[in-house]
Each structure stands twice: as structure tokens, then as C-alpha cells.
Design a protein around this nucleic acid. Structure first.
Lengths: 188, 188
DNA sequence: ACAGTCGATGGCAGTTACTGACATCGACTG
DNA sequence: CAGTCGATGTCAGTAACTGCCATCGACTGT
């Protein structure tokens, strides 16, 4: 018999998402999250560096998946095509549940601090993608630009997917955004 | 004779920049900034919503300049060209002093919370540019994509300008980044 | 079986970011 | 000259986070 209930992080993240959705991020204290998870405030801050971070506990997994997928694309592909392929793969493997993503995004968009945190996670993702591209032999500034373009496609496509009914998959909107970006940068 | 010294905000921003550079953002308390500016902590928080914001007091002016400049570009120009022209104008009018920009950026890059704040300022700028583009008749998602592409060009170009010796102007690196983005999205 | 170690947690005190309520007092206005 | 206004000061309070030490089931080696 274990001394504590298992999956403390999972309980904290679930409790936090519920409370943020119910009463808002600012109106929720770390102690309340911990209490709902059957833990104490002190333990909350052992698992998460700050209150915002509890909503982004999986971010490093997503970043790793992006990097691994991009690294697995044949080097013969042009950088932008490798990134397009990566986005499609990630969309299928990590963003199947529309309603869940919508709720979570609604919580984030409702609070400026959470939006800031999301932006820096995307910036970290961009940096990781740029590093992976450089490993493929892409020089700077092309590597940074390609990575940032990929994040732009992801942001815009994801936003439209969230705003949509949920019928069409994320990959559809990512394709739309990529085609749109190509058209726009070509001067159309 | 006035009851208080003039330009409280200017004094606070100057004091904050000095202290952040000397001892770092985290090691500086709001009370210390206020004291160096000849004010109290409470007054600091009347001028700035939080400690980070004191470094971004001019951000809304920059955003306004971006929007005004973009709005002034003839509608005959393609969106991406209008944005390129806007970036060039802003570079000349707001980023002449390389060393000053470098120091300020060093302070920001040294702290994660300040980086977050900068990212959300850029996101706000992107949203404002997208709105201005929509007023020019650009539909979505092209407006959002063009605005995001412009921010990408600015971020990458600005970063290279900061890392450079200061001989070449910001406009040079913005041009380089825009050309690079066009090449990259074209599949090269 | 027993001693020692380990790791996740609890408890508690302390600092700092930020907020609300109220007071102050020179400048301006009629 | 009375009244108002606006930028500031004072003070008390909440909540985010941190450091330090204690707890105690599980595991490990003998």
C-alpha cells in the first residue's frame, strides 16, 4: 500500500482546469487547487514552478513530439515541406479531441497571464524547431524563419480549428493556413 | 511651483532600467525602483499595472505608429508589400539608437517573465496590424497571416540587428528577413 | 527481521508583488 | 476665498512563491 494517492500531477492539473473554468484563473488560489487534489499548497509548488504552469504540464511532451517528428522527415524534403509534414502528423496524434481543446483554450484566452505563458511555450517550440532544422543543415536565418513560419501556421490554423464546429480536423486548417501564408508572402 | 517633480513615469522607467541592468529583474523590488525615482511603491503601481510593465511603457506608442504607418500606405500595394514598407518606416523612425536597444534587450532576454511580456506585446501588435489590414479589405485568414509574417520578420530581423555590430541599420536586417521568409515559404 | 536511506509530502515562517481605503495638500476654478 | 481636483503618501491586507525542517511508508542490504 502506497503512502499517497498516485498521480499527484494529474490530479492537480485536473483540479486546476476545473477551477479555472468554474471561477476563473485569478479567482482561484493555489491552495484551492491543491485542496481539491487532496494535497497542500506547498506540494503544488513542488510540482509546478508557478500557478500558470499547471496548465502547461504536457508542453514539453508536445515539443519533444514536434522535434522527433521533424527529425524523422527525410532530409530530401525542403524545410517548409518537412515542417508541413510535421504539423500534419502532430495534428493527428495530439489534437483529436476538439471539445477538450476548446475548453482549455477558452480558459487560457480568458486570462492575460495564461496567454503570456502560452506564447512563451510557442516561442520555446519555435526555438526547438529551429535547432532541429539547423541539424538538417538549414542555415540561419532560414532556420529561424522557417520555424517561426511553422508556428504562425500552427497558431492561425489552431485558432480557426478552435473557432470551428469541430467537424473538420485540425490538419485541414493547418493546410489552409500554410497555403494562405505561401500566397501572402508571394505577394498575392 | 509644482508640488511634485515632473515626469514621474520617465523617472520610474529610467530607474527601473538602471536597476534591472545593475542587479537583475528579480533582485530588484518595486520599492527600490520607486525610491530611486523619489517616489513610493504605491505610486509605482499606480503608474504600472505590474513590475514588468515599467519596461514597456512606450509599447502602445510603437503599436500606434505601426498602425498609422500601415494605414497610410496606398491601398494599391499588396498586403505584404504594405507591411514591408511599414517595417522600413518604423525602423528608421524608432530604432536609430543601436546601443540603447541592445542594453534594453539584454535586460529583457535575461528574464523569462520579461520575455513573456515582450511576446504578448508583439502579439498585441500583430492583432493591431491584422485589424488594420482588414480595414484595407484583406480577408481572414490572410490578414492574420500577413500580420504574423510581419511580426516574424520583425522578430528575426531585430534579433540579428541586436547581435550585429551596429554598423548596418535595422532596415537592412528586416529586408534580409523578409527576403528570407519569402524564399523559405516558396519551398527553397 | 532490522537498520538505514530515500522520496514525496506536510507545516510554518518569511519575502514580495500587488490592492483597497483613506488622508494630504498644492494647483486650479469660479 | 471656498471648493474641487489630481498626484501622491500611508497603512493594512491577500496571495504567490521560497526555504527549512519534520514525517513516515517503501525500498535495500545484510
Amino acid at each position: 500500500m502506497s503512502r499517497w494517492q498516485p498521480n499527484a500531477r494529474g490530479r492537480l492539473e485536473q483540479a486546476a482546469l476545473e477551477l479555472f473554468a468554474e471561477r476563473g484563473f485569478e479567482q482561484t488560489t493555489a491552495a484551492q487547487i491543491a485542496e481539491r487534489a487532496g494535497l497542500t499548497e506547498r506540494t503544488f509548488f513542488r510540482h509546478y514552478a508557478d500557478k500558470r504552469e499547471v496548465l502547461f504540464g504536457q508542453a514539453h511532451l508536445l515539443e519533444q513530439a514536434f522535434v522527433d517528428t521533424l527529425t524523422g522527415v527525410p532530409e530530401s524534403a525542403a524545410p517548409i515541406d518537412a515542417l508541413a509534414s510535421t504539423l500534419e502528423t502532430i495534428a493527428e496524434q495530439h489534437f483529436g479531441h476538439h471539445e477538450r481543446a476548446r475548453q482549455r483554450q477558452a480558459v487560457i484566452m480568458a486570462n492575460a497571464e495564461l496567454r503570456e505563458r502560452e506564447l512563451i511555450k510557442l516561442a520555446s517550440l519555435s526555438a526547438a524547431l529551429a535547432t532541429a532544422l539547423r541539424r538538417r543543415g538549414v542555415p540561419d536565418p532560414a532556420a529561424s524563419l522557417t520555424a517561426e513560419a511553422g508556428i504562425t501556421v500552427f497558431k492561425v490554423g489552431f485558432g480557426r480549428w478552435i473557432g470551428d464546429s469541430g467537424e473538420r480536423p485540425l490538419a485541414y486548417f493547418l493546410r489552409e493556413a500554410l497555403d494562405g501564408l505561401k500566397a501572402v508572402t508571394a505577394g498575392m
